[in-house]
Simulated assay, not measured.
Amino acid sequence: MTLRTKYLEPWIQARENLERRDWLSKDKEKEETQTLIDKVYNALGSISWSANIRGFSNTERTVTLATYCTDEWLSDIQENQMLDLLQRRLQHEPGGQQIKVESVYFYILLKRGYDARHFTCIWETRHALSSGLGPSCIGFLVNVNRNHWVAVIVNFNSRSILYGDSLNQEPPNDMLAILHWWMHHHTGHRFTTRSLEITYQKDAFSCGLLSFNALAHHFLPMEYPLIAVSNVRNGRLKILLDIIDQHLDQAGVRHLQGRTLLTSLFDRASSPSVKNISSPSLNPKPLLTLCDQKVLYLPKARLG
């Protein structure tokens, strides 16, 4: 995979998508969208194009942030970033210490334990539950059929399992079997299954955002209202801003010295008119040329 394909093209796609949204946004939402896109431009101009993202459980490159600016399906990378943000936010809330937000790999470990009928992979959570020192709620996301995200919350106080699916589908029987097996084995009680409030999607890419939003809304309803189905793209950009803010805080720097590739690529003043984006003469050569020119000014350490 070439340097351009791996690092530059995702950012180019992100910029083009933002420009189209800026131009095509409807009058009633145009001001909000344009203000949000301006914030995204400013934020992206302050980070390096291929550095490690700081302040999150998993180490990922900043290029993975470009996905939030597009309609691409959110992978485990983006889902875990959002879950990390929620867990950190809960730590500052009264009672937040009793809520545990797990990564997207939690259910995978549960399934392995169920399939093998052993518990080594989930020993830490099991021990906490049996000792009575564990959380009152566990929230996590599950990937169904490798193409769809759903939200699950296990509430130990009410002995209930909450399930949220943005396609308005019932939980798969095999998933319920695993969850009920795990809960009964470690608590000795049967748990009921209830619906988790969630926005229903009308597209093919919003399940990742809406499942996370349902999880966050359940725990922090004032801070995370349910996203309107017409506002999912703006919702992705708001998450992006939160991630960049966390990264800059942990990196201990708010402004990079010198101009990075993203400073130039996400510069309103140099942005070509969106009206001409579809023109063969302007797409994509000017942006690729811009990238080629700016790569020369990046430190060699950034090229890895």
Rank of each mutant, 00 (worst) to 15 (best):
M1L: 14
T2C: 13
R4H: 13
P10K: 01
Q13C: 07
A14V: 07
E16N: 03
N17S: 15
N17G: 04
L18I: 09
W23G: 11
E29C: 14
E32S: 06
T33D: 12
T33K: 09
Q34W: 06
I37W: 03
N42T: 09
A43D: 04
A43S: 07
L44I: 05
A51S: 12
N52F: 13
F56P: 03
F56A: 01
T62C: 07
V63M: 03
T64P: 02
T64V: 15
L65V: 04
T67D: 11
Y68K: 10
C69N: 10
E72H: 10
L74K: 06
S75Y: 10
L85A: 00
L86I: 13
Q87I: 03
E93K: 11
E93P: 02
P94Y: 00
Q97V: 08
Q98W: 08
Y105R: 07
K111M: 13
R112W: 01
D115M: 05
A116N: 00
H118M: 12
F119R: 01
T120M: 10
C121Y: 06
R126H: 08
S131L: 09
F140L: 04
L141Y: 01
V142S: 01
V142N: 01
R146P: 05
N147E: 09
W149L: 13
V150S: 00
A151K: 02
V152P: 00
I153F: 00
F156P: 03
S158H: 09
S158V: 09
S158G: 08
D165T: 05
S166H: 04
L167N: 14
L167K: 07
N168F: 08
Q169P: 05
E170S: 14
M175E: 12
A177T: 13
I178N: 01
I178A: 08
I178P: 05
L179Q: 00
W181L: 03
M183I: 14
H185L: 13
H186P: 06
T187G: 05
H189K: 11
R190L: 07
T192N: 03
I198H: 04
Y200D: 14
Q201I: 07
K202D: 12
F205Y: 15
L209M: 02
L210K: 00
S211H: 05
F212I: 05
A214E: 05
H217P: 07
H217N: 15
E223W: 08
L226W: 01
I227A: 06
V229T: 08
S230D: 15
S230W: 09
N234M: 15
I239M: 14
I239S: 15
D242C: 07
I243F: 01
D245V: 10
D249L: 15
G252N: 09
V253D: 09
R254S: 14
R254A: 10
H255M: 10
L256V: 13
L256R: 13
G258F: 05
R259D: 13
L261I: 12
L261H: 02
L262R: 00
T263I: 03
T263V: 09
S264E: 15
S270C: 12
P272Q: 05
S273F: 09
P280H: 11
N283A: 07
P286A: 00
L288R: 08
D292T: 06
V295Y: 04
L296F: 10
L303A: 07
